[in-house]
Design a protein around this nucleic acid. Structure first.
Lengths: 146, 146
DNA sequence: CTTGATGCAAATGGTTTGCATGTTT
DNA sequence: AAACATGCAAACCATTTGCATCAAG
């Protein structure tokens, strides 16, 4: 479901296909996102992690890298509430349920949304992007304690 | 005339119930959001419209008002892409499909999401908020021209 | 060697906040 | 009168950008 087998080199190759370059910074960003698995990382957190190994890589470079990778469709942006933008590999297809109380997130089986996706297409001609769906609400724990 | 679903005065009464006050600014914000119908308004746009009638109302007051109304559950926040936060009346229940190319939005029948909502509850104990769902994708026009 | 990528610092833009003052209850 | 709300200006913070330098192809 979620993960197809992808290597960093394959992803960097995609970038080269668009006339862009495979640099240390870009490799590092992809490595961290791959290591994060289903997690979502914001630019600052990504920078913090990367800088333990590559102290020279600047935060602004992370931002530019995230832009480039997003434009290439290699990574996807997910926004939770008014927190900073987070990113994950596009190959990691899933949807998000975010608890508005504690901020925890749940990753959902994409199949659940198939009926919705089909209906959007049929009724409105709208092509839903399969990677960007977010539902807000209360997780089990917070709705119990609230 | 049937039963109006909400009046401004009822909404302001809700605020008073929380120990807060019914002021010109708050009334003006609610008036604009009501007038906007299904539209979503950002703080700046809201300020622009309100200031034609109440030039003294400051943008920072709009922000504080939006916070207060959101905390009271009277209005809801919807974020589209990396554009500024937008708000709409909570009573206006609908979901959003947003075109990532042209920014146009589509309001969707909440019934479409019922199966998803039920499944989230049953499988994950997650109580989905019915007002905050956003799907990204390409609208009919942009997917045709793209 | 050519062009894209980076580091740095400075700018941006939406949003928040401290404080003195005005308004609602 | 007591709290809350507001205007204003300044602070904030995530993100972007101009420019000189560096590195990938």
């Amino acid at each position: 479901m979620g993960h197809e087998p992808v290597t960093i080199d394959e992803l960097l190759e995609q970038l080269r296909g668009r006339g862009q370059r495979a640099t240390t910074a870009r490799r590092a960003v992809l490595e961290e996102l791959l290591a994060a698995g289903e997690g979502h990382l914001a630019a600052e957190e990504l920078a913090r992690r990367i800088q333990t190994r590559h102290p020279a890589i600047h935060l602004s470079t992370i931002y530019r890298t995230l832009d480039a990778l997003t434009d290439a469709g290699i990574i996807s942006l997910a926004r939770f509430g008014d927190q900073p933008a987070t990113y994950h590999l596009t190959t990691d297809v899933h949807h998000h349920a975010v608890c508005t109380a504690c901020g925890s997130t749940l990753n959902l089986d994409p199949a659940v949304f198939e009926p919705v996706r089909r209906r959007l297409l049929r009724d409105h001609g709208f092509h839903a992007d399969p990677h960007h769906l977010t539902i807000a609400g209360l997780c089990r724990r917070c709705s119990a304690s609230g």
